[in-house]
Simulated scan of single mutants.
Amino acid sequence: MNLHGLRLFHHVASLGSFTKAAEILLISQPAVSSQIKQFEKELGIALFHKNGKRFTLTPFGEALAQKAELFFAHEIQLEQFVQDYKTAKKGRLHITATYLPANFLIPQWAAAFKAANEEVEISITTRNSTEAFRELIHYKADMAMYAGGLEEQMEEVEWRQLFQDEIWFVVSPQHRLANSTVSLDDVMKEPFIMREAGSSTRERLFSLCHTHQVKPPKIALQFTGLNEAVRSVMTGYGVNFVSSLVVKEYVKTGQLARVFVDIAPVKNIIAICTRKGENLPPVVKEFIHLCMESSKHSNAGE
Rank of each mutant, 00 (worst) to 15 (best):
L93C: 03
A97L: 01
P101I: 00
A116Q: 15
A115G: 05
S123A: 12
K89I: 01
N117I: 01
F71S: 07
A116F: 02
F113S: 00
E119L: 15
I76S: 04
E75G: 03
E118L: 04
Q66M: 08
T126L: 09
K90G: 06
N128P: 01
W109C: 12
T87A: 07
E118S: 10
G91N: 03
L70M: 11
N128F: 15
V82C: 05
L70Q: 13
N117M: 00
K90A: 11
E118N: 10
Q77M: 07
V82I: 15
F81E: 06
E69W: 09
T87Q: 13
Q77C: 05
E121H: 12
A110N: 02
L78I: 12
F113D: 01
Y85C: 04
Q80L: 11
A116S: 15
L93N: 02
E119V: 05
Y85K: 14
T125H: 01
K89H: 14
Q77S: 11
A68Y: 04
L70G: 07
E75S: 07
Y99T: 10
T126C: 09
G91P: 12
R92L: 03
L70H: 09
E75Y: 11
F71C: 05
I76E: 07
P107N: 03
K90E: 05
Q83F: 14
E119A: 13
S123H: 09
Q83N: 12
A116H: 06
N103P: 06
A115P: 00
H74C: 08
A115Q: 15
T98S: 07
K89E: 06
E69Y: 13
N117Q: 04
N103V: 06
H74I: 05
A73K: 10
Q66H: 12
R127H: 13
P107M: 09
K89A: 02
T125A: 06
A88L: 04
N103M: 13
E118V: 08
S123P: 06
L70K: 15
K114W: 11
G91W: 09
A73C: 05
F104T: 09
A112E: 12
K89S: 03
I95E: 00
A115S: 15
A88N: 02
A102L: 01
F104I: 01
E79C: 04
N128K: 06
A111I: 06
T96S: 09
G91L: 05
H94I: 14
A73F: 14
S123V: 07
K114P: 00
F104N: 09
N117A: 03
F81I: 08
H74D: 08
